[in-house]
Design a protein around this nucleic acid. Sequence first.
DNA 1: GGCAAAATTACAATCGATTGCAATTTTGCC
DNA 2: GGCAAAATTGCAATCGATTGTAATTTTGCC
Lengths: 337, 337
Amino acid sequence: MSEEPKVRNISDLARIAGVSAGTVSRALADSGLVNEKTRAMIKALAREHDFRPNIMARNLRIQKTGAIGVVIPLGHDTGQHISDPFFITMLGLLADALTERGYDLMLSRVIPTDEDWLDRFTDSGRVDGIIVIGQSDQAAALDKVAMRYRPLVVWGGHQKGQVHCSVGSDNVAGGDLATTHLIERGCRRIAFFGDPTARELKQRLAGCRAALSRAGLGDDPRVCPVHLAAGIDDASISQFLADEQQRPDGIVAASDVIAMTTLRALSEMGIAVPADIKVIGYDNLPIAEHTVPRLSTVKQDLTTGANNLVELLMRRIAGEDTGSVVMPPELVVRTST
Amino acid sequence: MSEEPKVRNISDLARIAGVSAGTVSRALADSGLVNEKTRAMIKALAREHDFRPNIMARNLRIQKTGAIGVVIPLGHDTGQHISDPFFITMLGLLADALTERGYDLMLSRVIPTDEDWLDRFTDSGRVDGIIVIGQSDQAAALDKVAMRYRPLVVWGGHQKGQVHCSVGSDNVAGGDLATTHLIERGCRRIAFFGDPTARELKQRLAGCRAALSRAGLGDDPRVCPVHLAAGIDDASISQFLADEQQRPDGIVAASDVIAMTTLRALSEMGIAVPADIKVIGYDNLPIAEHTVPRLSTVKQDLTTGANNLVELLMRRIAGEDTGSVVMPPELVVRTST
DNA sequence: GGCAAAATTACAATCGATTGCAATTTTGCC
DNA sequence: GGCAAAATTGCAATCGATTGTAATTTTGCC
């Protein structure tokens, strides 16, 4: 067949247009250097041949990638998937914020098995910067990378002396807020649901302790180290609550997912919320509004958080050393307390 | 300071090693052509200088990108975010499946405002192939792209005569299964919750109609076009169910999210599930197991689906024309029916 | 020691776009 | 018409890695 060969690159289009490749490049990039008539002719030909310049070649030349790596370290549980609605909500918000700034989002889920799990992203030349969602138990590794790689921002708790730039709510204040609310609603025997191995949850527990201590209720609440992932720890929750003598009258759940798991387990045990036990969560995810009863929670504004992550990263890519952002939590009272 | 300059590329490392750039490239790539002693020396130097080859330059030369585009068309609602837990569960599964095959995942959320919304991905040279999650109302546009771009696979409903390769459950069978189940549980006045503009939901409604017709219950159920996104249509659900004379005794919810929204609305109206109205969903997401009561649903195996998407895409990247995959739905009976 | 084969390494073209600077063309003024 | 300035376009180096082929070195045998 006499079908003309496909235009594969700028040189091909230049040949058809009767100009040089440089002129084609400038025409397609709307450079002021190319005559308007020539520019329109070249653009029409590009459209006619369904031609778009190769982004990788361009990025190699301009030494930018146009992509941001979003890395989710998922702890050491290799079977775990990105199912936590928190991660996912954050991911969606980041996708939108990055698209608005003309960046592509390169998603990677990693299992931090060795100390340099982040290096293959920082040193690959594949992304212009990296956003890590969640510190897991890797704060030290993140500090190490941050010492030599500036365009890195982490969603997570801030701690004095940390090197890496982070965005997150004031977890201590949030834990305090949640606990104070339960105390104000009459609770005297408060438990904490969540695994404090992760920095954020550890900080929320610290806030819980502070509020209890202030109220003269001791400073050592019982802790049920419920897994962050949905639907895993039902049995351990049931076991924790089986002993009616030891049963708490209020539960600070370290995340909305843990709260939802808890609500379901309580429902199945025939324990009424909030009459018998009051439950409060953390995050204020859209999904949490669906619980029965509707969940009281500590809101961290994820939209603002995502925008802060992207804003700080852009500034760090530009060469600035930014400080961390710690956002104030807000109490959202619904019917589970 | 007398700090030696950073090794920025293979030429820099070659100079330090006293060999050519080609030898360094081959040594780092474990090519059999390089002497073992030389190879070890070069690798040690690379480690010592924290050097990793630039992936973009390599990809330009080998004419592969090492990335797969995952595109989520979100309908025409520009304010919508990637919050649907279905999308997100699928995203996590895809991230894992692609990582296992050595690919990076480039995430893009797009609003299909014009007819060639997908072209900027297909023609950019940025990705080796594309997975689209959800057809929205864009089946025709997807067919158009599929005619000229082979490495494209879509999560969604299959339809005779379609050009694009798709993976999804048999939505007609799934809608039939859900409706038959409600009929077997005694329902006689069944409604469909979901907006049939999207092909998948339209097919689920068709299955619902078929089951009703077979049971002699007419073939035109009332449809409440509930939005797929969480928490939006509470008011319209309440209004739909306000008239006790018209109230259905069974609801086929076109997705688990719609089902969750429905369960919450019913709870607030004081309507008992399943005693007064039976509710069944679609998808079998992990989150849906948290509802009170636990949701009966039609399961489409997302893990298998994600693996199928990636498997078909790999084959199409390799040049093969694959057919679509239509997976059988399964009924999962819990306590909402 | 000489020679052929094998092993090792070097050279430089290539991928495809960008862009500084040079060459050419066009324009406007005298 | 000639000339200088401005506008337009072309040339080719560049980004950084890969790799086919050539050059060089090493090895083993006679």
